[in-house]
């Protein structure tokens, strides 16, 4: 069975993922909206930057973050100036890294959902004199609901599965940065295969169930169906 330490790592992992997912939706929604609507020449560049974590090895991202967020790095100097200290080895640092790492998993489904809404509903809302904010919450959000659902779940689960970045900037501190993927890795390296099996099993079951729920729910309300 799971030991207390293992449970701690599970709990911490979900905490990191929840914070990161919340921040990603907050940042990702306007970003995805802009990417879906803009005709700016910058669209390609921003799209490429947001998608970088999809192709970069997490260790590359982690290595850059360790240097940038450290005392001599640009981000590190800014956080130090703000009185926050430096971010590596902290819970906040892990959340920031997770946001960067999982952002494409939130932005891309949202961007697709926003793009598929098209001009018509927005024009209709405008003729009814809905304010932009009103349009957003009563037209766009309901129409893009499957996109939001996919974005939330993929952002969350991808953060749960994060490993390379945490290994580089985490420092394996109980209750702060020791997340479940690192704990499994440590169990395996310490040749504690039984403990590794238990934790890995939990994670596998969790991931499968969440994805199963996602795909079965989405099937009942596909994006195209709502548009008709």
């Amino acid at each position: 069975m799971l030991s207390n330490t293992d449970l701690q790592t599970l709990f911490l992992t979900f905490k990191v993922a929840s914070f990161a997912t919340f921040l990603m939706l907050l940042l990702g929604t306007p970003l995805a909206w802009w990417l879906a609507r803009t005709r700016s020449a910058w669209k390609g560049v921003i799209n490429a930057v947001v998608s970088l974590p999809l192709v970069l090895p997490p260790t590359v991202l982690g290595f850059y973050l360790l240097i940038l967020m450290g005392p001599t790095g640009t981000i590190g100097q800014i956080t130090h100036w703000l009185g926050l200290g430096t971010l590596p080895f902290t819970f906040a640092g892990l959340v920031v890294a997770s946001v960067l790492y999982s952002l494409p998993f939130v932005v891309q489904p949202l961007q697709t959902a926003f793009a598929s809404i098209g001009e018509q509903p927005l024009e209709a809302a405008a003729t009814l004199r809905a304010s932009p904010l009103d349009t957003f919450f009563s037209v766009i959000v309901p129409m893009a609901k499957p996109g939001f659902l996919t974005a939330t779940i993929l952002g969350f689960t991808h953060t749960v599965g994060e490993f390379g970045v945490v290994l580089m900037i985490g420092g394996n501190i109980p209750d702060k940065t020791r997340v479940v993927s690192v704990q499994i890795y440590n169990h395996v390296e310490a040749l504690e295969y039984t403990e590794a099996h238990w934790l890995a099993g939990y994670l596998l079951a969790f991931s499968f169930i969440v994805l199963l729920l996602l795909y079965t729910t989405l099937k009942t309300q596909p994006v195209t169906h709502q548009l008709k």
Binding site: L66, M69, G70, P71, T72, G171, I173, E189
Partner: peptide, 20 residues
């Protein structure tokens, strides 16, 4: 105050980047 590297090379990395 412990920050733990997975191996000694990673521990060196934590110190050499002045994070520890």
């Amino acid at each position: 105050f412990f920050v733990q590297g997975e191996n000694i090379a990673q521990t060196y990395q934590f110190i050499s980047t002045a994070n520890a």
